[in-house]
Design a protein around this nucleic acid. Structure first.
Length: 200
DNA sequence: CCCTGATTCGC
DNA sequence: GCGAATCAGG
């Protein structure tokens, strides 16, 4: 694919709309996000902001970064730079590679063995109406995937009645590590509760 | 890990 | 001019 007028226009448009390079690339097809970014730069519209202040933070310093420079085939690393041993104590700690400091913090709670799933917090609060609103809101944007279309990074939150044909899975990008998208994660890990209050 | 944009540089 | 490879953050 080449950068035809149309494609460039779409690129400009989308970039202007704040779409990510990967999204643009996906839309255009035939190009990678790298290609898009490269083009964006060549077009000189790297910064989406137009007028004045744009450069956010972390700028204002030179870039003494060690660049590999010419790395045709030989895969070699520049050099880890002088190993600087951060020494804190004059002469303590004979050895012990990984010190694994034990911050004896006063607020030291109990250590959770290795489980990642956070145990239901006693101080459970009900599902925040906010979270619920968020959910119903995003469910409109849901990709409505079928079981078969789910992947490891699509939200697996089911919506609707499985017995109906009005059933689908959210499908939005999951919150890293979790099975659901952000909105659903918020409502998924509810400490069970709101049961006691039931009339019966 | 996934995703972002930024840069460099051989083609 | 192009974009993969790489870098640097989040």
């Amino acid at each position: 694919m080449s950068w035809t007028d149309e494609r460039v226009e779409l690129l400009k448009k989308m970039w202007g709309e704040g779409q990510s390079a990967s999204q643009i690339a996906k839309e255009l097809g035939g190009v990678t996000r790298n290609a898009v970014i490269g083009k964006v730069h060549r077009l000189g519209l790297s910064n989406r902001a137009g007028g004045g202040a744009a450069t956010p933070p972390t700028k204002a310093e030179a870039k003494p970064k060690a660049k590999p420079e010419a790395k045709a085939k030989p895969v070699k690393k520049p050099e880890p730079a002088p190993a600087e041993v951060a020494d804190q104590e004059p002469e303590a700690k004979p050895a012990a590679a990984a010190p694994a400091p034990q911050p004896i913090s006063p607020a030291r709670k109990q250590i959770i063995p290795a489980g990642q799933p956070l145990p239901p917090q006693p101080s459970a609060n009900e599902i925040s109406p906010e979270a619920l609103a968020k959910v119903s809101a995003i469910e409109k944007k849901a990709k409505k995937l079928t079981l078969m279309e789910l992947t490891e990074r699509t939200c697996k939150w089911p919506v609707g009645d499985p017995a109906t044909d009005d059933f689908w899975f959210c499908g939005l990008p999951v919150q890293q590590g979790k099975p659901y998208c952000e909105a659903h994660v918020g409502v998924a890990f509810q400490p069970m509760s709101s049961r006691r209050d039931r009339r019966r």
